[in-house]
Write a protein that binds this DNA or RNA. Structure first.
Lengths: 137, 137
DNA sequence: CTTGACCCTGTAGTTGCTACAGGGTGCATA
DNA sequence: TATGCACCCTGTAGCAACTACAGGGTCAAG
């Protein structure tokens, strides 16, 4: 499989694939006579793992740890659970923040009376933090 | 006011203040004899506006537009409302994505039976996208 | 034998900061 | 007067996680 095929097969940008190789997430594949990268099924599986993890919001370093575990099936797997659990907590925190943000924005918006910026509620609210309820960050 | 004071007054990192000046979000302040930046109340207000906007998740370019409107009170303010509304939509979309993500993660996690990585549900699920319900991204 | 799609390396850009290195300023204290 | 210390200056490089070239090489079809 050439890199373009792998790209299409996994929905990953070609540049991204080469980037993953450079940072050591993907192993260096064999090369053809013309110096083209040549991938097999194992590469596709591994890249899919990486992409899926990234879509779920794991950082590259977390993906590295998860891959490391996947590569060593004889190890304890608690680490994977720990990484995922910590990540879940972060996602939940982020959701909370965004909900606060959404409420703040909703409160600010929609009061445009089509007038001049001088009377704009949005601009006014942005300048004056004390008008806020929630503590965004 | 010296930069350190402005930093404390607005809860903004000194490097960040200088960065905002460099990219033109804050005007260049007057300088003292010793070449120290010297800020006034107007600078503090403007920086507070910027920080507040950033905390609400507006991009630098959006902040630039909003500042531009704030600087021209004779203009129509609909643009501000438009920017904020678009941003609200983005925030709502992001919340939706994260909720999907959270559900996905919850489903994956917590099935660790303390065994070996070979049997790990987390790693298994990461490798196999077809186990997912939602369409994260 | 040339066209076009594909691939290669290497480097620089993106966003929004943050972190130095290597120096200067200004005020209090010994 | 010296010196210590907190603070400030410029300029550049780093972070995450890619993305986007520039400037070239490969390969199959027509």
């Amino acid at each position: 499989m050439k890199i373009g095929e792998l790209s299409r097969a996994t929905g990953t940008n070609i540049e991204t694939i080469r980037y993953y190789e450079r940072i050591g997430l993907l192993p260096e594949p064999a090369r053809t006579a013309g110096n083209y990268r040549s991938y097999g099924e194992a590469h596709r599986t591994r890249l899919a793992f990486v992409r899926h993890s990234r879509e779920l919001g794991f950082t590259i370093e977390e993906v590295r740890s998860l891959l490391d575990l996947a590569d060593h099936p004889e190890r304890e797997c608690c680490e994977a659970d720990r990484i995922a659990t910590r990540h879940l907590a972060q996602v939940e925190e982020k959701i909370g923040q965004l909900v606060t943000l959404r409420d703040e924005l909703s409160r600010i918006i929609g009061r445009c009376r089509g007038g001049l910026a001088a009377d704009c509620r949005v601009i006014e609210a942005l300048g004056d933090h004390t008008m806020c309820n929630g503590d965004h960050e």
